Amino acid sequence: MPQTTAPPIVVAAPLVDAHIHPDKSSWGGPWLSRDRADTLRDFIDNDVRTQAAYTRSVEDRALALFRTAAGQGTRAMRAHVDVGPACGVANVHGVRAAADRLRGVLDVEIVAFPQQGLLTAPGTFDLLDAALGEGADVVGGIDPEGLEGDVDGHLDAVFGLAAKHGADVDIHLHDGGDAGLDQTRRIAARATAEGMGPRVTVSHAFAVAAATGDALTSIADDVAAAGIWLVTCALGGDPVLPVRFLRERGVNVAVGSDGVRDAWTPFGSGSMLDRAHLLSYRTDAMTDADLELAYDACSTAGAKLLRITTDPSGDRIEYPGECLAQVVIDRPTPIRVLRDGDEIARDGVLVS
């Protein structure tokens, strides 16, 4: 009888989604048609209307997305969850309930995210304060200048809540150009002053992503000196952080999915391997080393951000393929996902 050779298997680190919005997602439900949006405020208003119209609960939609992500190898995620006048703290409760149902399979860190504005949406500060005592882990912020019009006031509020609750900080920063770079530096300076360093994250950081030449080198060195994190999501037409350059300058960089099939975008699959592929495409990865770096940014880097320790012998993903670079390009379904030595998923589906 001829002998058959087992197909090669690539063993890889667990994936980590460093930025996702599970409370917004329509995952597991019918197709969601979207309205065109041109400004940040348009997107926010569209999202508020969309969430109000959902007939399925936050817990149900988040759980469906979590199960898909975990089946594809995501070990942990940082979930940005809306807190504000439109929903109070209910979304935090829903996402936490969904996460609790997958305890031991998926670790979910919740950011209390003031999408409608922290200073400009009345009552939001008190709601964030409440959320941090009711299931949220991290203080969120959003465009201190572009949306709020008060950089110092916004940062005072965010870092004040962080000090009160002993929480990390993660600020959405869509503002571009010199204004965005200035806010990045001011966030970095506040992180240094508060002794928080790597416990502070700037998400999206479009101004840094769009910077070139001396401006990019300068902001990279300032961010590296402060030790804060930058998170990119390789979104549509938005600028993407140059991961290799920033890593070489000593900057902490991780990657997330952002929106998944929500009012903001029809895209997203729940798979961070897909995101590594997209990051590679957007950053013109060519070599095996470039492709492996993209995977690392979607796995090991995120684990470091969330301060998660994994053991390669018991925490791993097994893919069909010849090497990790090929896996990033081909995006195969994982053969097995293991956590603490136990098989939690096979062929992309949770075993229980």
Rank of each mutant, 00 (worst) to 15 (best):
Arg36Tyr: 12
Met286Trp: 13
Thr309Tyr: 11
Ala131Leu: 03
Tyr281Asn: 11
Ala345Ser: 10
Asn252Arg: 13
Leu161Ser: 04
Pro144Ala: 07
Pro144Asn: 05
Arg67Ser: 05
Pro7Cys: 08
Asp170Asn: 03
Ser313Gly: 14
Leu147Tyr: 01
Ile329His: 07
Asp38Ser: 14
Asp23Val: 04
Asp290Cys: 11
Asp129Lys: 09
Pro2Phe: 08
Leu230Val: 04
Gly237Cys: 10
Asp214Ser: 13
Ala76Ser: 15
Glu59Met: 05
Asp330Asn: 14
Ile110Gln: 06
Gly250Thr: 08
Thr309Pro: 08
Val11Ser: 14
Leu63Met: 08
Arg336Gly: 12
Leu279Gly: 00
Asp23Gly: 05
Leu147Lys: 03
Phe267Arg: 09
Val95Arg: 07
Ala157Lys: 00
Glu59Ser: 05
Gln116Lys: 09
Phe267Leu: 15
His93Asp: 12
Pro239Val: 02
Ala210Lys: 07
Leu65Asn: 00
Asp315Ser: 12
Asp342Gln: 14
Val10Arg: 09
Phe43Asn: 13
Ala285Glu: 06
Thr212Val: 12
Arg331Gln: 15
Gln72Val: 01
Ala97Gln: 11
Leu306Gln: 06
Gln51Arg: 15
Val11Ile: 15
Arg331Ile: 12
Glu109Phe: 14
Thr184Glu: 00
Asp238Leu: 14
Glu318Thr: 10
Cys233Lys: 00
Gly135Tyr: 01
Val48Trp: 02
Pro198His: 01
Ala294Val: 09
Ala345Arg: 02
Asp284Ile: 06
Val253Ala: 02
Gly259Met: 10
Ala193Gly: 15
Tyr54Lys: 06
Val16Gln: 00
Leu106Cys: 04
Pro144Arg: 05
Val255Tyr: 01
Thr68Gln: 15
Ala70Thr: 09
Gln51His: 08
His80Leu: 07
Thr217Cys: 08
Val202Trp: 01
Leu15Asp: 02
Pro332His: 09
Asp315Cys: 12
Ile142Arg: 10
Ala179Gln: 08
Gly133Asp: 14
